[in-house]
Design a protein around this nucleic acid. Structure first.
Length: 106
DNA sequence: AGTAAGGCGGGCA
DNA sequence: GTGCCCGCCTTAC
């Protein structure tokens, strides 16, 4: 169903999950999508985060690509990178180091 | 209404 | 490792 209501609902769920990611941990668009009992909505998740940037309340920067690359950010990758490194997550060439160490399964 | 693009993912060469 | 292609859902024009 892709009516307006279900989309809003989907976004709310995304935000609620993202808010739970602890500082210094990360998750992926894919993991989020799976948590919402869906299969292939990774892209929609990214779109949701992009559209509804309550940047203060929702730590969107802790969501990265499933292959460990940093992925996008409303304010640019550089900003995302900076925020994450401030939290102790280390990246090298836009790719996370020790992904498994930081991965947060909701 | 149609088409392209986007904070993606997987598969395969 | 790269690149390409296809599929996915939503948004933008």
């Amino acid at each position: 169903m892709s009516n307006k209501f279900s989309i809003i609902n989907f976004q709310k769920q995304v935000f609620n999950l993202v808010k739970k990611i602890p500082k210094g941990r990360v998750t992926t668009y894919k993991i989020l999508a799976e948590k919402l009992d869906n299969k292939n909505l990774a892209r929609a998740v990214g779109n949701a985060l992009n559209k509804n940037p309550q940047l203060i309340k929702v730590p969107c920067h802790r969501v990265i690509n499933s292959d460990g690359y940093i992925g996008g950010y409303k304010l640019g990758q550089a900003k995302k990178l900076k925020l994450l490194s401030k939290e102790g997550v280390i990246f090298k060439n836009n790719k996370i180091i020790n992904f498994d160490l930081y991965k947060f399964y909701l």
